[in-house]
Write a protein that binds this DNA or RNA. Sequence first.
DNA 1: ATAAAATTCAATCATATGATTGAATCATAC
DNA 2: GTATGATTCAATCATATGATTGAATTTTAT
Lengths: 199, 199
Amino acid sequence: MKKTRDQLLDIAERHFAIYGFAGATLRGIIKDAGTNVASIAYHFGTKEDLFQAVLERFAKPVVSQQLSKLETELQSKNLKLRNVLLAFYEPPMKMAHSLGKKGEILSLFLGRSQTEPEPVFNEVDKHYADCRDQFIKAFERALPGLTKEDYHWRFEFMLSLIVCFLTRQKQIRGRYETRTDWNPDEAINRMISFCESGF
Amino acid sequence: MKKTRDQLLDIAERHFAIYGFAGATLRGIIKDAGTNVASIAYHFGTKEDLFQAVLERFAKPVVSQQLSKLETELQSKNLKLRNVLLAFYEPPMKMAHSLGKKGEILSLFLGRSQTEPEPVFNEVDKHYADCRDQFIKAFERALPGLTKEDYHWRFEFMLSLIVCFLTRQKQIRGRYETRTDWNPDEAINRMISFCESGF
DNA sequence: ATAAAATTCAATCATATGATTGAATCATAC
DNA sequence: GTATGATTCAATCATATGATTGAATTTTAT
């Protein structure tokens, strides 16, 4: 039997992903988790504390995977843009795919975390700030000679592709494909190719 | 005089853009609009009806501008990809910029409308469905020889850039720029160049 | 000017929500 | 086994929310 705390995190993650911060309700969460309202207060505190806990649990691993992959690439003398892009795209995409239904939730949450207007999501930016800096530095090394502004714009464009893919994948796939499964490698490749040319 | 109705639409638009559908409250809206809760019921009906009215008012003009620009381009014997992209990007970007503060709201709304999970936003897709089909057809003409899937992916990527730009522009600009104003032409050009290579 | 229609308003309803409390239950150490 | 602390629970609070009503006010048409 799963611990209440973990169960709550799983369900809360799903609800925040699907309904957003404002749209998710503690009662909806505890109902799905089969527990009591007070258990949230006991384990986490307020609704916002719960959200931060969810964020902490999933954002950190993804970012650290991205950074460690990037680190590996940086060792190489001949840093290739394509490999930097791969280091960025692969962790979240693979995770989103490998986890199946849960990955769908996670990716939705990840995508939403970039677009939600709620103040709580400002915290998200902090989680990603260091990651962004590192990748922009890598871009400068892989593709020297551009202006600071160029790198920022292109990083944003690169990020846009995956944010929208993750946030909208269900609608997109529903529109374009019949099959319910998707190929992460194809998606990654398409994103990388698109960006590589764009850069 | 339809003063109250328009006022409500303006304020509601802002609130939906900033707080999302679930986060926006009728009381918050009527307080800013300086009117009464019942006025919403009178002029629109339910909260969802109000949302649809907001959507109707702003989405239609943008889409119709995009389509009419595209129509013009389609007249040309030698259809250029760049011009198709311009037809897509210019209307929402110009509108977002020219309206200043209000444009910021509109663009936030526009961006959010592509990522919100709420069922109400499913309606948004209908508004854009025809527009998407037309542009994909134009892509096929401007850049023949690709598979159906290719066009869909690239359309999504193109869309991603502007969705994320509009949704995140404030955060982005806050991070990268000191000045509060922005240059729509520069943004449009950067998007087009990035896509043109990607295609 | 006046009646009818359109619009606005204060008051209220029923429910939902985040949060808190104190008692009950469970797990663990001794 | 029992005492202690950790965890769960039902009950409750205060407020917020979407919606509705009927009276008051304003606008419009004649």
